[in-house]
Design a protein around this nucleic acid. Structure first.
Lengths: 194, 194
DNA sequence: ATTATCTATAGATCTATAGATAATGC
DNA sequence: ATTATCTATAGATCTATAGATAATGC
């Protein structure tokens, strides 16, 4: 049975939204079109009216995942200023909650290594996401303008690496220590003047 | 046809060695037992005389991958001292070579996010590898002993995060900038006295 | 007439096992 | 007799497509 354009568009949004969460939870390889469509309340055959391939879906929903994170960050920056927004982002990023539930969190920490092995469309989505985040992070720093990009890469790298380590480890003590140390240092970097 | 114990042991080593490279190159999900055994010059049915399951293989070869990296680091430390060994490790870790060829490089950067979704046996192998590397890195630092673990986590996190970002991006300029900035900062951290 | 979805399935994987084969090692 | 390997295959995936169905939208 055919459905209206609005319903198709809603389904398209739904598929992308479910995928952007499922990819972060299970990774790219373990996310199957069948499971995804089932979670969206549709049958899997219909998928190919929305996307040419799984690869195209991964690119789209990676983009969406980045957009959501960026939007949340920007909204906070508007209401509380860039420094407060960055501080909140860092605290959330290195929290137990984010470590234990990646579904609405950072796409790079969840799928970055897998992305390196994907098509250029997918890698393009990641590249653009990384650039946007570096930009946003640098706006919240206290150091002189010309040092900010470099400092943002330092801060972003530290956050990403610490989260990947904390997630890979099944020793709670180690995991907590990694997050705590990274958090302390990250907050220092935000306020560093030179 | 049955082969001698020595040959079996050699095959076991061979399978683990090939797997430790293949896992870093393709990731855990994309490494299949069939491909792996073929690359080792054996048929896939024989695999299960060596390992109970693919999961057990992943744990073993992750351990082996960490051991090799640790051994290389320790050998360098013995001949040139811990600070020189750490410096060499950082330069190699953040090089184009390591970014473009993960096969003999850092297991965490190649499979860390996937490892979070694996069994406890696999995560245990990663946990132990992470601890060993933190230990080694801290031995090469210039700061007071009681700060070294925290500083090693900072340095390790920065290196790991930068490499994951550099690999995920398909924009050469961005990738190079991330590696260069991380390298500059990492070398500063090594020499930082307080 | 067009098309969004569904059912069914093709064709290609994947992990793991069963049974045959043939050389080792007691 | 035991066992390391091989061949063959079971059973469960996976992506993608074909054809049927039924509602939309010209």
């Amino acid at each position: 049975m055919r459905l209206s354009r609005e319903i198709k568009a809603r389904h398209h949004e739904e598929i992308t939204a479910v995928a952007s969460r499922m990819l972060r939870e299970r990774g790219i390889e373990r996310t199957s079109v069948v499971d995804l469509m089932h979670a969206a309340g549709l049958t899997h055959g219909g998928f190919y009216r929305h996307f040419k391939s799984k690869d195209e879906l991964v690119a789209s929903s990676a983009t969406k995942a980045f957009e959501e994170v960026v939007e949340r960050f920007e909204r906070k920056a508007e209401e509380a200023g860039p420094r407060a927004a960055l501080t909140a982002y860092v605290l959330d990023y290195l929290s137990d909650t984010h470590r234990d539930d990646p579904t609405v969190g950072c796409m790079i920490s969840a799928c970055g290594a897998e992305a390196s092995r994907q098509s250029d469309v997918v890698r393009g989505a990641f590249t653009s996401g990384i650039c946007q985040l570096i930009e946003l992070v640098s706006d919240g720093l206290s150091c002189p303008k010309e040092m900010r990009t470099e400092r943002a890469i330092e801060l972003g790298g530290l956050m990403l690496g610490a989260l990947v380590m904390a997630r890979a480890s099944n020793d709670v003590q180690l995991s907590e220590k990694v997050l705590a140390d990274a958090k302390r240092r990250a907050l220092q970097i935000i306020d560093q003047k030179d």
